[in-house]
Design a binder for these strands. Structure first.
Lengths: 227, 227
DNA sequence: CATTACCTGACACCTACCTGAACGCAGGAA
DNA sequence: TTCCTGCGTTCAGGTAGGTGTCAGGTAATG
């Protein structure tokens, strides 16, 4: 699982980061909201851990903005005890959960896996994209009434487009998503997977931007709805 | 929504009850676990609010027993700040959420409606799945007129699929369900249980998604084609 | 035209998965 | 006690399907 941690406290941030890593996840840790914005713009996280009081703004505004722009990435809020109203506001703003500081690290682990579980069965599991109906919990896709099954890798790539429907994703970005940092891939894997996805989902779905990368075709994404 | 409140503190209990009522729900309030047992035996609640320290036992044992016997009613745990390990154990025992005392009442409202949303399609005691008729209370399954009996572990795995019929469940998720955090299982237990379930329920029942996990076959679950 | 980027069918490897079988352990009966 | 039975867990061998690689072909760009 790829997790974004937004926390300005160094001590706490380090502890949280280490715990998450030892749970087998990947973490990117930033201390400011504008860094966080950069991160979510380029990387499709599966979970955001969000402190509410940050040097350059309130976490809740960040969260609200993300939800406004259609981002459904699960978010857990990290908050101090005396910010009860903030917590409620956070839940209303679209947070999936919160942790009250100071919290136990094994509790963090439990909450993370709980959110991960819950998210995969979230109340809005069905996403519609053109003629595709996507059930993220079941990882199943229906195309014109027929079920389409994707392999693990294929789903990873497809998911990247799902999470950021309008974005143009470079091959490097997609590779980074598929393979852990150190792994070296010396070939046209991404091209191959794009091809396989096109074969399964329909060739009009993903369009090539020569020299730059790939993105979902505009008529598929639509103007406002979807995701 | 019909809610069971298990809380021995009179002041808190009254406050919670009033809040829930003013949210438009129905509450049954009991102060002891054996009263709670009577209640859940006769009434199908949609949510249980469960204090952990009660005069006649630990709430967590109650919850665990309910889950063991196939009850999937959502539960929110009410716990004091210093009972962190209890909270974690509660989540592992099958709680859906918890509230830390002292909590704000509007926070309670938010959490309740969150659970309600999550479980908007609440499972009833007699579930039909394809040619299977499942009695979660009795843990018995009828397949084509014949009774099928599952062992405890087999049921645990099966129940996971029952609770989230359309979800894809990874082996890690299933393991986490079977074993407490500390227990280490170093083998293909899940694979074996999947195999045994298939043998008992029919091979077409559970399908493998290589590299990702397992899920109920789609023709079994049936396509809920809203959306 | 040449050049570059991308597409795609084919293929070998490898790993996740399946399955039968055996082992360990607990509870019950004699 | 000892034997038996049922359940949970582990292990090893076999298999099929996913993955990465490559080569030859196609389309875009100047």
């Amino acid at each position: 699982m790829r997790i974004l941690l937004v926390e300005d406290d160094t001590i706490l941030g380090m502890a949280v980061r280490d715990q998450i890593v030892s749970d087998g996840h990947t973490v990117d840790w930033v201390k400011r909201l504008d860094d966080a914005s950069d991160c979510v713009r380029t990387i499709a996280y599966e979970l955001v851990l969000l402190d509410l009081m940050l040097p350059d703004g309130r976490g809740i505004d960040f969260l609200k903005a993300r939800r406004q722009s259609g981002d459904v990435t699960p978010a857990i809020i990290l908050t101090a005890l005396d910010q009860i109203s903030e917590r409620i506001a956070g839940l209303n703003a679209g947070a999936d959960d919160y942790l009250v500081k100071p919290f136990n690290l094994s509790e963090l682990t439990a909450r993370i896996s709980a959110v991960a579980r819950r998210y995969s069965g979230s109340p809005n599991p069905h996403v519609k994209l053109g003629e595709l109906i996507i059930d993220t919990a079941a990882r199943s896709i229906h195309r014109a009434g027929r079920a389409v099954t994707l392999t693990a890798r294929e789903w990873s790539v497809f998911e990247a487009f799902l999470q950021r429907p309008r974005a143009l994703l470079s091959k490097a970005q997609l590779e980074e998503r598929l393979y852990s940092f150190d792994a070296e891939v010396e070939s046209n894997t991404i091209e191959v997977y794009i091809g396989r996805l096109r074969k399964k989902l329909g060739h009009e779905f993903i369009e090539t931007v020569r020299g730059m990368g790939y993105r979902l075709a505009e008529q598929i994404v639509g103007t406002k709805d979807g995701i």
